[in-house]
Write a protein that binds this DNA or RNA. Sequence first.
DNA 1: TTGTATGCGTTATCAG
DNA 2: CTGATAACGCATACAA
Lengths: 338, 338
Amino acid sequence: MTSADVAHRAGVSTSAVSYAFNGRPGISDETRARIHAAAKELGWRPNSAARALTGARAGLVGLVIKRPARSLGTEAFYADLIAGLQAGLQEQHVALSLLVASDLEDELAIYREWTRDRRVDGVVLTDPRQGDARLDLLAALGLPAVVLGNHPSPPGQAPTVWIDDGAVTTSLLEYLWALGHRRIARVSGPEKYEHTLRRTNAMAAFLAERDAAPAEVIATDYSESEGAHAARYLLSRPAPPTAVVFDSDVLAVAGLGVAQEMGVRVPRDLSIASFDDSAMARLVRPRLTTMSRDTVEFGERAARLLLRQLDADGPVASEPGPVVTLSVRDSTAPPAAR
Amino acid sequence: MTSADVAHRAGVSTSAVSYAFNGRPGISDETRARIHAAAKELGWRPNSAARALTGARAGLVGLVIKRPARSLGTEAFYADLIAGLQAGLQEQHVALSLLVASDLEDELAIYREWTRDRRVDGVVLTDPRQGDARLDLLAALGLPAVVLGNHPSPPGQAPTVWIDDGAVTTSLLEYLWALGHRRIARVSGPEKYEHTLRRTNAMAAFLAERDAAPAEVIATDYSESEGAHAARYLLSRPAPPTAVVFDSDVLAVAGLGVAQEMGVRVPRDLSIASFDDSAMARLVRPRLTTMSRDTVEFGERAARLLLRQLDADGPVASEPGPVVTLSVRDSTAPPAAR
DNA sequence: TTGTATGCGTTATCAG
DNA sequence: CTGATAACGCATACAA
């Protein structure tokens, strides 16, 4: 079953079939329709390997995950993201190829190889950093990309689907402030990520505006153990915070466990909130107050933006991601009078 | 950069390069080494699209996930599995392609398409059922597969990496029985899955041997809501169980939440155990007693078995998966005297 | 043991 | 608008 069969069936040449399936001019609407009909009858679709060989689409989009492989299952983020990317790509019969890289060098090598072999048509980038080496490489390679970022990308760079982490931080802090919290600490992710930095800056600005003391921020690698450690440290201070915000829900749940072990009642003695929502935040008791964003939709939008990018001649514009809303649950309350 | 370049550099013909890279005879060890050296210097590796076109390897393995896309992130199982598959495949530079199917028809269509386009070299199957239609199709298509199953596969069928869910069930029940529990209920997954059935049968046999009353088993679709509903029902009975085992940790955590809401103390009034371990089981309080299996390793073994299958001429044998051990944590205790 | 010729299914080029 | 024909990069029978 080849394009020649379809051409024969439709009474045209193979190039007509090619034109019809690549939406290019030089063919009448009537023949185009006839060709599509013939292909449908025969159940034919262009062979992706042959396409990739001639430099056309591979029908595959890549995602490199740079986290320790073991931690993948711990956080729902990547799973949700993958589900969303999937959904967005499937509309155009594009598949997702997944690779786990152990470090930056690895990741860059993968992009080089993918480009060389025309293995993927484009890639999705997560966790952008400042002066991200990956963006330079991808630009040099000419490999289309979209970034899950926190601001629109500068012209000439890969477009982002962005969520303003600064604004999200401010929203959460406004809520805690309104409850009466004045000693708010934060257990964050690694400082190298842009979203971590943006949150840090927004938090500093928020507190400075209100003449409050700067927040204590403890950076972690997102692991349960570092989250627990940070929580233990904060709760052991002479004047412990009355509220702690965590950059991810794994950190928050680890922190909640520590509080419970230490006899600190949540939310009576301590309010806990997370920047990340997931099933786990809803399943633990007390249920966690979180900033919730629809990660699946985030992925879907990224997928669609990438597909548009692949079709476009020039650069496409960044666009905002899903709305982030505050889900108030049971882990936050006004601070107890002391 | 093509095989011709490498051939030129090594002073041989392109076929010699092909032979060298496909490990076939007809070439001296010395030339083979020279060819590999030349390839390494030039940073050349066979183009996967071209390979796929000639009927050789595509360098891609497929995994179809047949769950509602939204639920992917809830359970750690798939994320861990993917991480493991990744790790196993990477050794041979094989990538993983992921697709989410909404139903069986979808899934079968994907296999047909993948075969037709030589898009993947093999696939990994999860959640086998009795008389699984997918196995018949894959056999008919000649698409290599491995199954994450619960017993060695019958001859002629795709090999499995298997975990004996019956034995796992017995282990867990033995522990609960030894603690003194006599009214043990179970909140299970869908009955259509083989592993669900095996657990059901093992549990029935276990209780029958001890002349105990048959267990109450409530089937769910693995969702939080059905898990909570089942737990609520069980705890509202006139003579509620003293222990409940859950088929997954999401179900168990949902059940734990219900118990806490109803004022049932765990483990004092109720013991809870799960067949599935993950970070969540360790993060909630009380921490859950689970049967823990290394899902990442499960995936790694499946990947390696599939790679072996791809290299082999005939069928390869099924093999046991990772060992499942009981992780006793804080959610189980002897039943309170009533 | 090595080289040569051919095909895989598509797209691109260029005459018609 | 259409129809040949040449790539694309590799594998493989076959000849040397």
